[in-house]
Structures are given as structure tokens and as C-alpha cells.
Write a protein that binds this DNA or RNA. Structure first.
Length: 469
RNA sequence: GGCGGCGUAGCCAAGCGGUAAGGCAGAGGCCUGCAAAGCCUCCAUGCACCGGUUCAAAUCCGGUCGCCGCCUCCA
């Protein structure tokens, strides 16, 4: 039975979707004002794992991820560059999709942009105004009155009476009835320039929180199954989403709230001033394998703080290679001619699959799940060394690895083919080796290595692989 | 001040009452013209510290120390 730690109850709860086998997920996506950093991707990779695992479990997933393409930062930056908001955000939307492809993150079903859903937001705000929950401030902005929503604070545990100002909060805002009220609609100001919408609410733009309420309910319904995000979103963002949505509909907004912990780098908070701030692009430029990045971001349980280190990145690369070797070994055996089946092998595979699923069912315990996978790898490697693997067992193993990889997504299926010319060189070298002409053999090996192709002479003949950077 | 999390081998990281998974690194071995790679084996009498509960605790309770997050930009 699949269980999740629900932030709302702070308990592990059995997962029961509203309309099985359908599952609706809303994930808070990026604000497209810059390249996303590895901390952002920790969340997106985890959400991908969630998506993939639900699919593995036989659910039919509808995932919605928003793109915030209008806010203070995007407006300010686009003005600075003297280009339109659309032109500016388009660049980073494109970069975002390139990055998630790089990390082998499967696409969500819908990526709604805030700017394309202004009408939906306006409608929701009007509903809140009609119900007397929202009000217009002296500055012409429209605010949400948290005092009118009794449930305010139920997700984050922050009751309004405890929301006293921290050191960094200014307390002098006179436009709002209560300082903790938040903006649903921001009236146009000169700084906004040409960024505004003429709507029944007036001339202006939406507040941040309203887009997620409006777009999630539009695509997933007034009540849906899972809402995810980084732990920093719990308050105020998700608390406010609940307030907006539930006050408008009178229904439970979301059944399961899942939040992932932050990532730290080399034991310290990632920050530009410490020089440990990395985008995905930075790491790729340094020559790291994107899938090693994915593995590292994936391999720690999502509610644990993840310590991103370069040692860890190298370890991840090695771990992936171990899996690749295992897969290649099975592929070799599947093309040989050992008949029959070995109970020890099928047992090891079944134990691996079972262990993986059992761990993942427990609130996506990926570390435990990977432990089960590597245990299977070790057992079968041993059998392979002792007795060899039959064709049928190898095929069963391949099927299992593919199934596991459909969830973790760290093995890439690349076409492994060399140009004929190079194939010929390898053949020539093999002949040379047989004749003990090692000088020629080493010469060819060196030549190929210079081209980035590494040769290995194994008991089963010479094999090649692209050298990792 | 309010709310919450974490401290397990050199590094990363599961386990959450029944006697320490897994990965990386390291050491030995197998294979091998050399090389590289791979595979196998080994690698924590102990889980920050001090008490307590229990037949049994890394796991529960109390306390101490240390680290971290949120409290309206934030994954």
C-alpha cells in the first residue's frame, strides 16, 4: 500500500485517490526569470520520481506544473533589458524545458502560464469579493482577509495570532486591514510600465498565490489529489492557496500535501556570495554527466536535506556505471545460448523488484529502493561469475531493469553503434593481438582513445565504450 | 519569540523496538600480452552525548550539546 507523509496531518497516510486510477497532481513550477539552479531541480526531479512511480503503480497521472511568467522579478528584469515581458520570459521558459530534458525529467501533462490565465484568476478573485472575503485597499489593490477564513494556518501550523512580525518584515503597511493579508490583485503602478491587464477588477496584474489556485482548479478540479512543492512553499504560498480555494469553493482543496526539503552544497547553504551556487548548465559545462546529477538529486529521500557535493557527484557517476555494466552483462547473456532457467536468478530478480516497490511504497523511500536494486545486482553478478546466466533469465533481468529504470530514469538507451571504419579498426586490432603484434594493437587502441573511444579486452572479446568526460 | 527538522563508518545514505541495507572510496583476490574496465570477498560490538523505560533501543521517554529550515522573493 502506497503511503505518503502528508504535510497537512504530519502523518503517513495511505494514498487513496479521489477517482482511481486517475491521479491529479499540481506542482509549483519555476518563475521564469533566470536559469533554474540545482536546488530547484532537486524539487523537479523528485516530482518526476513521484510522477513516474505513480505510473509504475498503474495510476493514470495528470500532472500540472505552472510557469510563473509575471511577477516583480520578471517585470523588473525585462524593463532593465528594454524588452517585452513575453520576450524575456520566453527565453527562460525555453531554457527550463531544455534543462528538464537534460535531466531526463518526463513532461507534465500541462504547463499553464500565468499570463494566459488572467481571466480565470479574475473570476476567482471576483468570487472572493462577492463572498466578502476579499476587499479593496486604499491603494486599489485587492487583498485577502485572512481573518475571514477560520482554517487559516492549518497547513503550516502558523496561526494568525502567532504571525508576529519578524525582523525583516516592515510593519507600516496601512493599505491592508491586517498586515498578514496578502494581495490577490495588484493595481497598476508606473513601475509596471506596459505590463498590465484591463479587467473588471481594474487595471493591474495578479498576485502570486492566486495563479496556483486558479490554474490548479481549472485543470484538476476544485478538489484534487496531490499538491507538491519545496518546503519553503508551505508558508505562505500553499497556506494562501488553501485559503483562496477553499473560501471560494467550500470544498477541500487538496488531499495530500507533499513537500521536499532543501538542498545544501558542500554542507553549506547555496548562495552566490559563497561561490557555491550552481545552475544545471554550470555542472554540464564542468563536464559532469547529467544523469549523474539526476542520480544525486534523486538518491536522497525527499524529506531529508540533500547535501550536494562533487564527491557525491562522482560517486553517483560510478553507481550509474555499475548499473550500466549490469545491464550490458545481461544483454550479452541474452544473446548467447545457455538454455533453461536458474531459480536463484529469478529469485534474486523478484526480490529486487519486491524490495524496490516495498521501499518506494513507504513514502518514496528511494534510498531503500536503490539498496534493493544493488543487492539484486550483486547477487546476479555472483551467479554470473560462478555459473553464467541463461537466455531466459537474462531476458527476465532486462525486463526488470527496464521496469526499474522507468522509475529512476538514470540509464539512457543510446544507440550503440560505431562507424564501419572504426569497427574494422577494432577487428584489425583483434587480429594483431592474436598474432602477438602488440605494438600495432596498442597503436590502434591509442588512436581510438584519442577519438574518445575506450577499448577493453575482456574474456568475451574486445568491447568499447565512449569515454566519460 | 513562534513552528519544525536533523546528528548512523573516510564521504553519501537507509533502517524508526528484535540485535547495523546500499552506493562511493579503501584493502585483498580473479581475469589479463600490457592497460583499462569489470566481477568477487573484506570493511561500524556500534548509530552526537548523558540518563531512563524494556527480556531487547540507532529506534521509545527525559535532558545536554551541535547543525539547519520556515515566520509574505525563495524548490
Amino acid at each position: 500500500m502506497l503511503r505518503f507523509q502528508n504535510t497537512m496531518s504530519r502523518r503517513l497516510e495511505n494514498f487513496e485517490p479521489i477517482n482511481p486510477p486517475n491521479v491529479g497532481i499540481y506542482t509549483c513550477g519555476p518563475t521564469v526569470y533566470d536559469y533554474a539552479h540545482i536546488g530547484n531541480f532537486r524539487a523537479y526531479v523528485w516530482e518526476d520520481l513521484l510522477h513516474r512511480y505513480l505510473t509504475f503503480k498503474g495510476f493514470n497521472v495528470m500532472q500540472v506544473m505552472n510557469l510563473t511568467d509575471v511577477d516583480d522579478k520578471t517585470i523588473k528584469s525585462s524593463h532593465k533589458l528594454g524588452i517585452s515581458l513575453d520576450e524575456y520570459t520566453e527565453k527562460y521558459k525555453k531554457a527550463f524545458f531544455e534543462d528538464i530534458d537534460t535531466l531526463n525529467i518526463e513532461r507534465a501533462q500541462v504547463y499553464p502560464s500565468a499570463t494566459e490565465h488572467i481571466d480565470d484568476m479574475v473570476q476567482l478573485v471576483r468570487m472572493l469579493l462577492d463572498k466578502g472575503i476579499a476587499y479593496r485597499g486604499d491603494d486599489d489593490c485587492i487583498y485577502y482577509s485572512i481573518a475571514k477564513f477560520p482554517g487559516y494556518g492549518k497547513l503550516s501550523g502558523k496561526r494568525p495570532e502567532h504571525l508576529i512580525a519578524g525582523a525583516r518584515i516592515k510593519h507600516d503597511e496601512y493599505e491592508k486591514e491586517e498586515w498578514a493579508d496578502f494581495a490577490l490583485w495588484k493595481a497598476w503602478t508606473p513601475e509596471d510600465g506596459d505590463v498590465f491587464w484591463e479587467t473588471p477588477l481594474g487595471k493591474g496584474r495578479p498576485g502570486w498565490h492566486i495563479e496556483c489556485s486558479a490554474m490548479s482548479m481549472k485543470y484538476l478540479g476544485e478538489s484534487f489529489d496531490i499538491h507538491t512543492g519545496g518546503e519553503d512553499n508551505i508558508f505562505p504560498h500553499h497556506e494562501n492557496e488553501i485559503a483562496q480555494s477553499e473560501a471560494a469553493t467550500g470544498k477541500t482543496f487538496v488531499r495530500y500535501w507533499l513537500h521536499c526539503a532543501h538542498l545544501i552544497v558542500e554542507g553549506r547553504k547555496m548562495s552566490k556570495s559563497l561561490g557555491n551556487f550552481y545552475t544545471l548548465r554550470d555542472l554540464i559545462e564542468k563536464g559532469y554527466n547529467p544523469l549523474a546529477v539526476r542520480y544525486l538529486l534523486l538518491a536522497t529521500h525527499y524529506r531529508q536535506h540533500l547535501n550536494f557535493t562533487f564527491d557525491g557527484l562522482n560517486a553517483s557517476q560510478s553507481a550509474i556505471e555499475r548499473l550500466e555494466e549490469f545491464f550490458d552483462m545481461l544483454t550479452d547473456y541474452s544473446q548467447r545460448d545457455i538454455l533453461g532457467t536458474d531459480r536463484k536468478v529469478t529469485d534474486a530478480i523478484n526480490d529486487g523488484l519486491k524490495g524496490f516497490e516495498k521501499a518506494m511504497d513507504d513514502d518514496l523511500n528511494i534510498s531503500g529502493a536503490l539498496g534493493a536494486v544493488f543487492e539484486m545486482v550483486r547477487k546476479i553478478n555472483k551467479i554470473s561469475a560462478d555459473d553464467g546466466i541463461t537466455v531466459a533469465d537474462a531476458n527476465y533481468g532486462i525486463e526488470a531493469v527496464n521496469k526499474l529504470n522507468s522509475v529512476i530514469g538514470v540509464l539512457k538507451k543510446e544507440e550503440r553503434k560505431l562507424p564501419d571504419e572504426l569497427q574494422k579498426l577494432i577487428k584489425e586490432r583483434e587480429t594483431a593481438r592474436k598474432r602477438k603484434n602488440f605494438a600495432r594493437a596498442d597503436e590502434i587502441r591509442k588512436k581510438l582513445l584519442d577519438m574518445g573511444i575506450e577499448l577493453k579486452d575482456t574474456p568475451d572479446g574486445t568491447k568499447w565504450k565512449l569515454r566519460k568526460s
